[in-house]
């Protein structure tokens, strides 16, 4: 079971590793390396060089291959409750002491190519059919952990709001200013859920309260937490990490 979260008392020592990591990255972006020299670089996707353009083009090609490899009927492996990772590792684009609480007037907004744009309360979402899953959350960094989530299958929700499921993308916006987007085929996958619970308890803010996306057929950064709005759209929507160079499809 999850430990009760205590009010965090942060000392510089607690976040030294993060601070070092950030300063190291800032330094690296401007630096050359042996690998870089050998392959004609500073090419790290942040410049307009020809090599970066080629890398981005190949990433878009990879996205097409990934979409072709995606089998809508193939399920991610599920695990017994004994396999659930404890303690579960927190991850976001900020450290855990910056986790934001749920706004008082929170509603899940719905936008784009849908017939019913009424915003949803948590109670209304809880009244929809729920599915539970114990699946592996795989981070793009290489680590992975098994967790349990329960919530509304996104396909059920999309039908409920009268979404045009021929649209290309579903975009997620979060109240911590995170964004991501996924292809419609993955959105309709049976294991793609709007999770309301984590390991048998309503989501707390650090695990994505009040509603998060949980999509075990994609890398962890696609499972956006702290959702504020869902948009069904035909215009490519990118995302927080995707716009910096992570591959957009990010299928596993």
């Amino acid at each position: 079971m999850l430990e009760k979260r205590r009010k965090p008392v942060i000392t510089p020592d607690d976040i030294r590793a993060d601070l070092d990591r950030f300063s190291r990255r800032a330094f690296l972006r401007g630096s050359l390396s042996l690998g870089g020299l050998a392959m004609l670089t500073g090419c790290n996707l942040s410049t307009d060089s020809g090599v970066d353009a080629a890398l981005k083009a190949i990433l878009r090609f990879d996205d097409k291959i990934q979409a072709k490899l995606f089998d809508p009927a193939r399920l991610a492996q599920t695990y017994p409750a004994s396999a659930i990772t404890e303690p579960f590792r927190f991850n976001a684009y900020y450290p855990d002491w910056q986790v934001r609480g749920v706004p008082d007037d929170w509603r899940l907004e719905v936008a784009g190519q849908v017939t019913d744009k009424k915003a949803w309360t948590l109670d209304a979402l809880q009244s929809l059919p729920q599915e539970s899953q114990i699946t592996r959350h795989i981070c793009i960094e290489g680590w992975s952990q098994v967790g349990q989530w329960r919530g509304v299958p996104l396909a059920v929700f999309l039908r409920k709001i009268g979404a045009d499921t021929r649209a290309k993308y579903v975009k997620f916006t979060c109240f911590d200013d995170y964004t991501t987007s996924i292809d419609m085929a993955s959105a309709l996958h049976p294991q793609t859920i709007l999770a309301l619970e984590f390991v048998g308890k309503p989501l707390t803010p650090e695990w994505g309260a009040p509603v998060r996306l949980r999509i075990p057929t994609k890398l962890g950064f696609k499972s956006a937490k702290n959702l504020r709005a869902i948009e069904v759209t035909n215009s490519f929507a990118g995302g927080y990490w995707e716009n910096q160079g992570y591959d957009w499809f990010a299928g596993v």
């Binding site: 990255r25 042996l34 392959m39 670089t41 790290n44 996707l45």
Partner: peptide
């Protein structure tokens, strides 16, 4: 770092 390529994880 001098032995790596891409500058950061995404690269």
């Amino acid at each position: 770092q001098w032995a790596t390529l891409g500058g950061w994880l995404g690269g």
